[in-house]
Design a protein around this nucleic acid. Structure first.
Lengths: 155, 155
DNA sequence: GGCTTACTACTCGGATACTGCTTGTCCGAGTTCAGGGGG
DNA sequence: CCCCCTGAACTCGGACAAGCAGTATCCGAGTAGTAAGCC
């Protein structure tokens, strides 16, 4: 039950793109800003592009730019873009296997264990969807020096 | 971001132990009930024992029994026992690495990205802690045939 | 007949292989920009 | 002097290895029950 590093990388990179603004920025440049392995970060950014969070422009002077303002990007959008839409708890329906499955017909309703876990998982998704990247950036901007350093790193 | 199968196995096994009641039940018997690989299920049950949810008794006629009533076992207890207490989102503090880290001193406060993710994760933990195994069992017992089949499988 | 004792069978417990996913890297297709040549 | 064309360099995109955690399995340590032997 561990989240991929790509989520952290994507979040910071999206925030950097908003802080710097302007035209597209190359994947290598974005990676150097945080000391990340360039090609692998690009792999994650491609998933963000497929999810519609980023737009990629090829060729020289190309790179990635935000597809929409960060106030319209939630944490859930980023997590789902990187991690996929696979659920946290996958029910294997083991209640229908083994001796219990042989002795009783498959129950009609959904698995109560699955339902209970699904409720908890829904709480996570709601909490992720309730926060946008703009909220996070407002927290970062309490210290103006940080935004200044980020802009300087991309010159 | 996928939960271990062991969580599902542990939840069903704990519920079975409560349904059957009585003395300890061997790991192999518990595994056959759901058609699970026996030795591996025992490995998970050992973690539940270490967490204080189960009590193990060695020797013939031994096995595992509940260490406390399921009304005092939450979903969070089970998840933490199996998955460990590692957080879902691990912050690598990449904001302090690369060019940004070279240009600016390490920020004082906690990473806002980490804080935002931590809030969402806390919502998950609260939702897991709010549900006990007794709640799940009450849902299962709506169909009396299921409990009957479970008890029959352990005869 | 009752008690002690040794044995056996069954249990948990940890140490040991195997598989799939995360992580990391590389090379190729496509596009823009720049420079040179022609009109 | 302006326009067109060709070349090159830089970008993204997907295909290709390495490391690690989850998955599955096995064998050893320990204990209770049992049966035999002795008093």
């Amino acid at each position: 039950m561990r989240m991929t590093k790509g989520v952290e990388w994507a979040l910071h990179t999206l925030l950097n793109l908003d802080t710097v603004g302007g035209g597209p920025i190359g994947g290598a440049t974005l990676a150097e800003a945080h000391g990340l392995p360039g090609p692998y970060l690009v792999k994650q950014l491609q998933q963000l592009t497929r999810a519609g969070l980023l737009a990629s422009v090829p060729g020289p002077r190309g790179g990635f730019r935000l597809a929409r303002p960060i106030s319209e990007i939630t944490l859930l959008d980023v997590v789902e873009a990187i991690e996929g839409d696979a659920l946290l708890f996958h029910c294997s329906e083991i209640r229908c296997g083994g001796r219990i499955g042989e002795l009783a017909p498959p129950p009609a309703g959904p698995c109560p264990v699955k339902s209970a876990m699904r409720r908890a998982e829904e709480a996570l998704r709601e909490a992720l969807a309730a926060q946008t990247l703009a909220d996070v950036k407002a927290d970062i901007d309490r210290d103006p020096a940080i935004g200044q350093a980020i802009r300087a790193a991309f010159d």
